[in-house]
């Protein structure tokens, strides 16, 4: 543990966080990618990915978390998720109408199947995860500034 990371919680919490935060992130990606063959999907996966960064921020303080994921990147991902969802919907015009499932369906019960549904899951998860993490950042930073004034 280096010297400049003195903010945050105690050493026990930091060690446990360092061991588990990667697993939480990986579990979020698993829930997200398998959304069309098993329970889960974009909403739950996005919130789990946001929770992994929230976990990191609560344990280590805001400097380390901003080094991993700056605020501009969070806002970029949120807008990118919304635009990607709209873009997939607009691409349906190439073969018919809005939101048509224009990629081939594939074989059921396989990971690469179901056309645009996995792509939409990825877009939704980017949108939800980045949006909720931006909300959390805004509320936490407001609290920090109110404490600083006193």
């Amino acid at each position: 543990m280096s010297k400049e990371h003195e903010s945050g919680m105690s050493v026990i919490v930091k060690t446990i966080t360092r061991l588990t935060v990667g697993l939480i992130f990986l579990f979020g990606i698993y829930i997200l990618v398998h959304g069309h063959v098993s329970p889960g999907g974009g909403f739950a996966g996005g919130v789990i990915i946001a929770l992994s960064f929230v976990h990191l921020m609560l344990a280590y303080g805001k400097e380390v978390s901003f080094k991993k994921l700056p605020r501009a990147v969070v806002h970029f991902f949120e807008s990118f998720g919304a635009l990607m969802f709209l873009g997939i919907a607009l691409l349906g015009f190439t073969s018919g109408y809005f939101f048509i499932n224009f990629i081939s369906k594939g074989q059921p019960f396989k990971l690469f199947s179901a056309g645009i549904i996995p792509l939409c899951n990825i877009a939704i998860s980017l949108k939800v995860g980045a949006g909720l993490f931006a909300i959390f950042l805004a509320l936490v930073l407001l609290k920090f500034e109110a404490e600083k004034r006193k």
Binding site: F43, V128, L132, L142, K143, A146
Partner: peptide, 19 residues
Amino acid sequence: LTAIVISLATTALLVGIAM
């Protein structure tokens, strides 16, 4: 499923106004 996530966002908006 969509209503749950929306309710979280609106709750966070209410908390921001309250703070």
